[in-house]
Design a protein around this nucleic acid. Structure first.
Lengths: 196, 196
DNA sequence: GTCTATAGGCCGATAGAC
DNA sequence: GTCTATCGGCCTATAGAC
């Protein structure tokens, strides 16, 4: 968290940031399991052993990648606790969810889409209440109107999911990143159950 | 293709079908790369070497799993060539896409969602024009109205994509498989660009 | 058709020199 | 901070007995 923030811009910062940037790219293209530490190191011009000076393990790199985003999502869930439930809250939550994802950039989207299970499960085992899975489950509960039909429950899940799948869906689209992310946010909002 | 069809029902059929059924389950739960041949074999009660009597390779199992579905999708693309382009065709194509996926069952959906890249790329390298990627790209072209905006192009891609993501989105839903798949098809149709 | 045994390779991770 | 060398393990896949 020193020089480069978020890892979206050109990775001119410290070695740790450069490793994260390369890893994000490779994990997004090939998936976490199909990417080896050797491959990450070679892309950076040094050997695999040097990686272990900067990160304790392969999983540790992933944790660093999603750390800030996970924190923002947890803050969002926390914020909703003090709010009154209703349609306005639901639309506001969805807008903030899109904004969080927007901050991360398209490369992060592709990473999320390509490693859905990994991100969902990580941080879920330790003692504390961490994990993307738990946090997203809370968002489902907030966004789903009471007594919602199966279709409406699905609508809520799809509304959140397509934000994360934008990187995958927009792979061959000829448009700016900002236009794509804005369009995705509009479509997502339109997916929320009508009338609620 | 002898006794059990599709591998959805209880795998009482031949050994090949039982292997496919177990592999589909494990690939869906853990992903292709994180599932080993040893694991598949143990679940079936015999050793890894026996697997290679029935399938030439691990990838060969995946090919068998998506073979029939890939054939149906290719047929769908072929069928559209003789049709007149327009809104009716677009809605009909989407309905048929949902029907194809519907036939495969929720387990296949989960497998597709968890192994998106694998399925997309498989069969794309050989000499012929195979591969899910090529076939889906043609569907995009058919479904996208001429001169569509970025948002409308994204709508088409999301409409197809959420069908494949239904297994993931519906993981914790308390509803029958048929209800879930029907609801997903309705939501998908509603995502198509309005007015076209 | 299923077994044991093994080849051959890449993996994540560590030790220790510089 | 980066290197070479190496460990132990699991992987896909094959050979050959039964």
């Amino acid at each position: 968290m020193s020089e480069a923030i978020g890892g979206v811009a050109a990775p001119a910062g410290g070695t740790r940031e450069r490793i994260q940037s390369v890893a994000l790219q490779l994990f997004a293209e090939q998936g976490y399991e199909s990417t080896s530490m050797r491959q990450i190191a070679e892309q950076l011009g040094f050997t695999k052993a040097a990686l272990y000076y900067h990160f304790a393990s392969k999983e540790d790199i992933v944790r660093a990648l999603i750390e800030s985003m996970l924190g923002e999502v947890a803050d969002l869930v926390e914020w909703t606790r003090g709010q009154q439930a209703g349609p306005e809250l639901r639309r506001e939550v969805l807008a903030r969810w899109a904004a969080i994802m927007h901050d991360q950039g398209l490369r992060m989207f592709r990473f999320l889409g390509a490693n859905y299970r990994l991100v969902r499960d990580i941080g879920g085992e330790p003692g504390q209440s961490g994990g993307m899975a738990a946090v997203v489950a809370e968002l489902f509960a907030i966004l789903t109107p009471p007594g919602a039909s199966v279709e409406d429950q699905l609508r809520v899940r799809f509304a959140l999911l397509i934000i994360n799948m934008t990187g995958m869906a927009a792979r061959d689209l000829d448009a700016s990143e900002a236009d794509i992310l804005d369009a995705a946010a509009r479509i997502s909002t339109g997916l929320l159950p009508p009338g609620f």
